[in-house]
Simulated assay, not measured.
Amino acid sequence: MIDETWKIPQATTRRLPLYYRFLQNFANANKTRISSSELSEAMKIDAATIRRDFSHFGALGRKGYGYDVQYLLDFFRKTLDQDEVTDVALIGVGSLGTAFLKYNFHKNHNTRIVIAFDPRTPKEGMINSGIPVYHSDQMTEKIKEQGIELAILTVPADVAQYVTNDLVDVGIKGILNFSPVRLSAPDSVRVHTIDLSVELQTLVYFMKNDVKQSQL
Rank of each mutant, 00 (worst) to 15 (best):
Leu176Glu: 09
Gly64Gln: 03
Tyr67Leu: 12
Arg15Ala: 13
Asn177Gly: 02
Leu16Tyr: 01
Ile8Pro: 10
Val181Gln: 13
Glu38His: 10
Leu176Gln: 06
Met207Asp: 03
Ile8Phe: 14
Leu60Gly: 09
Lys7Tyr: 12
Ala27Gln: 03
Gln70Tyr: 15
Asn30Glu: 09
Ile127Glu: 06
Gln201Glu: 14
Lys142Asp: 10
Gln24Val: 03
Glu124His: 12
Asp169Val: 00
Met126Phe: 10
Gly174Asp: 10
Ala116Cys: 09
Leu153Arg: 11
Asp210Pro: 07
Arg21Lys: 02
Phe105Tyr: 05
Glu124Asn: 03
Thr79Arg: 03
Asp195Glu: 13
Ala160Pro: 11
Thr86Leu: 07
Leu80Phe: 13
Trp6Gly: 05
Ala59His: 05
Gly97Trp: 00
Ala48Gly: 12
Ala157Gly: 14
Leu176Tyr: 06
Arg51Gln: 15
Tyr134Gly: 08
Gly94Gln: 13
Gln138Glu: 08
Ala160Ile: 08
Ala47Lys: 10
Leu23Thr: 04
Tyr71Val: 07
Gly125Pro: 09
Val168Leu: 10
Val168His: 10
Pro156Leu: 14
Phe76Lys: 03
Thr202Ile: 10
Glu84Gly: 14
Thr12His: 15
Ala59Cys: 05
Thr32Leu: 05
Leu167His: 11
Arg190Ala: 04
Gln201Ala: 06
Lys102Met: 15
Thr86Phe: 04
His109Lys: 15
Lys123Pro: 04
Asp137Pro: 05
Ala151Tyr: 00
Tyr65Leu: 07
Gln82Lys: 01
Gln24Tyr: 04
Ile115Ser: 09
Asp53Cys: 07
Arg77Cys: 15
Val114Gln: 02
Ile113Glu: 03
Pro186Phe: 00
Ile34Leu: 04
Thr13Tyr: 04
Asn128Gly: 02
Val189Gly: 00
Phe54Val: 11
Lys173Ile: 00
Gln201Thr: 13
Tyr134Ile: 05
Lys107Asp: 05
Ile143His: 01
Thr164Ile: 07
Glu141Gly: 11
His106Ala: 02
Gln161Tyr: 11
Gln82Met: 03
Leu200Cys: 02
